[in-house]
Amino acid sequence: MARRYREIGKAGWGYTLITSIVGLIYFSPVLWIILTAFKTRTDALAVPPKLFFTPTLENFTSVFYRSSITTGTSQSTDMALYFFNSIFIAGTSVGLALIVGTLAAYAFSRYPLRGNDTYLFIILTTRMMPPIVVIIPIFLMFRLSGLAGSYWGIILLYTAFNIPFSVWLVKSFFDELNPEIEDAARMDGASESRVFFKFCIPQILAGLSATFVFGLILTWNEFLFALLLTGVETRTVPVAMARTLGGEVGVDYGLLAAIVTLFLLPIFFVTFLLQNQLLRGVTFGTVKK
């Protein structure tokens, strides 16, 4: 019997349904958290879990304002600051790593050193060991140099951690470019910096976006270093979140879920903004030019 082949771009309903189910399974923890964020304390702890309930914004309010047990007055929590810290620290360090990484990647790609691959390998070795191995020396270094608890300390650390990843990823994007275009620009009177900024960078914007988002997600969720190296003023959301676990009145799951939900928003937003670029970035080089 002759087999019929499906036309490209026309998957049947059956396939769509299966994909939706798999997608829902993947998304269910996130959905669970988001739902919990809108539940009252009783609903959040209900067994069996409630799928239908009256939503409340109470948890979101208490992320930023909480009534004191002793005085009964409403006072603001420091959560706004922690959100700012997370955005500022992750954004700056990933941005810095991207700038440094892009420059390094261009050099590695276009002006290879003797033993280029060895250097690239060495750069990557810092990502090979679990961070906990280096936590004590780094902590001591930060204490000695006075970087502990400062913005610059944690930003520099995250930048250093993101650079290898940026170098490797961005280098692969540069490697994909047709170097003739750069040569043509050189012949047409462009200086080296013009070649780089006007002709190389625009061609890999998608790749840079992808690198930025991946780096951002990694840094955004980082907990271990943030816990040890940030101070009261520079605490990031993951650390603050962990501290709510040990509240005076047991674990407030609704509050925790609300923080997580808010915490997801910036990443959602950035990913959504860059999603077209991101798709092109991750498929870069897989399609014949």
């Binding site: 047709n178 003739e180 275009i181 043509a184 002709f199």
Partner: peptide, 9 residues
């Protein structure tokens, strides 16, 4: 150039 090297942007 062989691959034309037109400036894509």
């Amino acid at each position: 150039f062989q691959f034309y090297a037109l400036y894509p942007s």
